[in-house]
Write a protein that binds this DNA or RNA. Structure first.
Length: 562
RNA sequence: GGACCCGUAGCCUAGCCUGGAUAGGGCGACAGCCUUCUAAGCUGUAGAUCCUGGGUUCGAAUCCCAGCGGGUCCGCCA
């Protein structure tokens, strides 16, 4: 809570019989800033004091006196407070300029492991993974910014029937070729080829099963083939991760630990924590907890996905001893993770507090993406396309050397992509229309980057840091609005982290940039008289800093020129 | 059949958890603003049964119930 609000709450407390916490919770920011800077609605009090809210407000108006508040005005049932603008400007700007990139940082200190994007190693990453990666990265930064220790890990789903499909197709029709393109794309082609051939020859399915059994037995030739295929896929992923600027402290491979889950389940069964169903499968009884029962070990002794997840949760905890463990996985697996949580609980496994960060599906205009049919928006193509688009726009405005042009286009293009995806509420599905979705105008990453570049440009032109600062000079509506928005940044960052919603930061930055653009349009900085100019420069310095801090949380670059 | 999520202008979206002062933005449309610190910008106009019907409340987009519409999941797939 900021200092101004605190003073008002204290002053109100003297007149009221409710706690400071209650008063603080009731306080709002008026929708229309002309009404005041803070507001206290008196509806709730009416029941206690037995007077009309209007009357309560007008009576309080006379009594309440708070530090740094220049006027208290009753407006119907609201009691509105006007703070000293000079003090507001001083407190806000000085704090930001002193704390710089730490402005807004929190004081939490948990150890948190976050797992993403956990791809299958039989096809390249697509748009769904893009959402996953951008979300995972941004949430990592949000949590870190709150003071937590964040450990980013990845999991390769590198075994199973889907991998065998790509392997089989390569074996039958690959002619021993080496990748002549990005290796994960090369692998993906064979996965699609398998699906095509299998339509005509359903008996291929049998061969896949045979291959899977051979793999599980450790058949030398099959393992060699598997190493080749999954190795290529992983190598391709590394390149894509680099484009998105993500790095993992540890990467798990399903192939390395999928067997151990069985032991955990067997032991738990022996201890009576799990039951057998009629057919002899070992199951977790979840019905009484409101969820469907879950098979953990088939009667033939083979394990299921859930069994591996139990094991991995255990391994992760052994590796990191974290307080919390986050899984960035799509909404279609909500039930799966609800079950996992309960099972971990039943088995009394220490795994930290588990959290499924569920994100909505990304659809194409023609419907769901289908990797098997190759109907996807490929992550690499998407990046390439958006950067090319940004490049054209940069060229329209500037003549740059190739290296500089590429760098600028990359910052702007990736900024646009990042913002586009993070501006949607996390659990919501959305339709991605390649032609229409990526815009560089309106509510976009470049809009915010542009505000930042404009500020940089003012400073470049001026060439000196502000010297004659007089906070009294900031009186314009647009200036006051900027100050108020700036003051809200720590709260926005905190909310975003607590709710795992980068969107809150996106919306905040739009509001700040919008307000800056309005100010910029309306008022001159460099042509104002010396002390007004310098004070405005200090204000802009603060705006620039907060835009940078916010963009950092969304992992978007802030170029100095555009 | 059961569980979960969603329904706000032609389109996209915020607000919903924690109920209050004229429901914010953006795209598209229309009308304007570059001899002024970058027009990737700014201003204005038109455009909303906040899915429907009940209920709670002094007050509901927001909370509760029912219904309608869309999505996801409920496999010994991952």
């Amino acid at each position: 809570m900021d200092g101004f609000k605190q003073e008002i709450v204290k002053a109100l407390k003297k007149e009221l019989k409710i706690s400071e916490q209650e008063i603080s919770d009731l306080m709002e920011m008026p929708s229309n800033p002309e009404l005041g800077d803070y507001a206290f609605p008196c509806f709730r009090l009416a029941g206690v004091i037995k007077k009309a809210p209007n009357k309560i407000a007008s009576e309080l108006q006379e009594k309440v006196k708070a530090k740094n508040v220049v006027e208290v005005r009753a407006a119907g049932p609201y009691l509105n407070f006007f703070v000293d603008k000079k003090e507001l400007a001083k407190a806000t700007i000085e704090k930001i300029l002193a704390e710089k990139k730490n402005f807004g940082r929190g004081s939490s200190s948990k150890k948190i492991v976050i797992e993403y994007p956990s791809p299958n190693t039989n096809k390249p990453l697509h748009l769904g993974h893009v959402r996953n990666m951008l979300l995972g990265k941004s949430v990592s930064r949000l949590l870190e910014f709150q003071g937590n220790k964040v450990i980013q890990v990845n999991l390769n789903n590198d075994r199973g029937v889907h991998i065998c499909k790509a392997m089989l197709a390569y074996k039958l029709w690959g002619e021993g070729r080496k990748p002549e393109k990005k290796p994960d794309h090369f692998v993906g082609d064979f996965y699609v080829l398998y699906a095509k051939k299998a339509e005509e020859k359903p008996e291929l399915e049998e061969e896949v099963q045979t291959m899977l059994r051979k793999w599980e037995k450790g058949d030398k030739e099959t393992i060699e083939l598997w190493k080749k295929i999954s190795g290529w896929a992983k190598k391709g992923f590394e390149e894509t991760y680099e484009k998105f600027g993500i790095k993992f402290e540890k990467t798990y491979n399903e192939s390395e630990h999928y067997k151990e889950g069985k032991q955990i389940v067997k032991a738990a069964f022996k201890d009576g924590m799990l039951k057998k169903d009629k057919e002899g499968n070992i199951i977790a009884e979840l019905k009484k907890k409101g969820l469907p029962d879950k098979v953990l070990l088939r009667k033939d002794g083979t394990s299921v996905y859930m069994t591996q997840d139990i094991n991995l949760a255990k391994i992760k905890y052994k590796d990191f001893r974290m307080d919390r463990s986050i899984y960035v996985v799509g909404t279609e697996q909500i039930l799966h993770f609800k079950q996992l949580l309960k099972i971990i609980d039943i088995l009394k496994i220490k795994a930290g507090e588990l959290y499924h960060l569920a994100y909505g599906m990304v659809y194409l205009p023609e419907g769901r993406m289908k990797s098997r049919e190759g109907k996807v928006v490929d992550a690499d193509d998407l990046v390439e396309g958006i950067i090319a688009l940004a490049k054209d726009e940069v060229k329209k405005r500037h003549e740059l050397k190739d290296g500089e042009l590429d760098e600028r286009a990359k910052q702007i293009g990736m900024g646009a992509l990042n913002f586009f995806i993070l501006k949607y509420d996390t659990p919501k599905d959305f339709i991605f229309n390649p032609e229409e979705s990526i815009a560089l105008e309106g509510e976009t990453g470049p809009y915010i980057q542009y505000a930042h570049a404009r500020i940089c440009s003012v400073f470049k032109k001026h060439g000196k840091s502000p010297a004659k600062i007089d906070y009294e000079k900031l009186k314009e509506k647009e200036e006051i609005m900027l100050l108020k928005i700036l003051g809200r940044f720590p709260h926005a960052a905190k909310e975003a982290a607590e709710q795992y919603k980068p969107q809150i930061v996106s919306r905040y930055l739009l509001e700040l940039s919008q307000q800056f653009n309005e100010f910029y349009h309306q008022h001159q900085v460099l042509k104002a008289e010396d002390s007004l100019r310098d004070t405005r420069l200090a204000l802009l310095e603060a705006v620039r800093q907060v835009i940078r801090n916010g963009l950092y949380l969304l992992s978007i670059d802030a170029p100095e020129e555009m």
